[in-house]
Design a protein around this nucleic acid. Structure first.
Length: 260
DNA sequence: ATGTCTCAGGGACTGAGA
């Protein structure tokens, strides 16, 4: 079972490219972030033509997430349902192919002095509180994945120039602590588990020749429950998808799980 | 070197967000 996550930075601007990637890569499940459109504008027909069902949580202009799957999608949850009155569409979960898939677009945070940074830390706290009871037990609790654009580089190994990024949003200690808080719930960073020493990135700034100079960060992650780890056979970043004409600023990240 | 991309509003460009 191949499961992928891809921040597309506008599905409208990237539709042909994303559909071509989906057809070529043929994952069982694909989580999308930064759709930047309402569900009414989601290309349901084109996605269905490739053999996928879709659960969408959209929003005009910003944010927006979706889960695509070759299998049925059940028990769809949009947002945390925690009464926070948050209009930002950043989280969707569904059960498919025998696993619980949770797709997230974490806030960027801008800079530690920004209101957006406080929102980011609060959002991680809401996610952690939402997740804790769901991973604590019950049927299926042990077979779950949390994947998406975390907007956090967990360690300096995930940063092209740690000194330049020290203390900045995406790399600051409180954000890394929030990321660790998710691991403490019993989740594992799949890429790092299989590639403990590898310096690899999933996002490169459009500016300053970020990609040609490989000045990137690893901020897109596939976390899985410890119960799923014995099934994990591969975890990788599709760096080639960041090349070519009109790419997203992110590359897709993927994992392969054996069937049993 | 605040250097790119995307969107909305409004109908050319500016500002926001990343």
């Amino acid at each position: 079972m191949k499961i992928a996550s891809y921040n597309v930075n506008s599905l409208r601007a990237r539709e042909a490219r994303v559909l071509a990637w989906l057809a070529k890569e043929a994952p069982d499940v694909l989580c999308l972030q930064e759709l930047k459109l309402e569900e009414e504008k989601f290309p349901h027909l084109e996605i269905a033509a490739l053999g996928y069902k879709a659960a969408v949580y959209g929003q005009k202009t910003y944010n927006g997430v979706a889960i695509l799957s070759r299998h049925e999608l059940t028990d769809v949850e949009r947002g945390f349902g925690d009464g926070a009155d948050d209009p930002q569409a950043r989280f969707i979960a569904a059960t498919t192919g025998g696993v619980r898939v949770m797709c997230a677009y974490m806030p960027n945070g801008e800079s530690p002095s920004s209101d957006k940074y406080a929102y980011k830390l609060a959002w991680f706290d809401r996610l952690t509180r939402w997740l804790a009871p769901r991973l604590a037990g019950g049927s299926g609790a042990g077979r779950a994945l949390l994947l998406g654009d975390y907007n956090v580089a967990p360690t300096d190994l995930d940063v092209h120039d740690p000194a330049a990024w020290a203390g900045s949003a995406l790399c600051s200690a409180p954000e890394r602590a929030a990321f660790q808080g998710l691991l403490d719930l019993g989740l594992v960073d799949t890429f790092r588990a299989l590639h403990p020493e590898e310096k690899a990135f999933s996002w490169w700034d459009y500016r300053m020749l970020g990609f040609p100079k490989n000045r990137g960060l690893r901020i897109d992650h596939v976390l899985v429950t410890r119960d799923l780890m014995p099934r994990l056979t591969a975890a990788w970043i599709d760096r080639a998808e960041r090349k070519g004409k009109q790419p997203s600023d992110h590359a897709p990240v993927l994992v392969e799980l054996s069937d049993t």
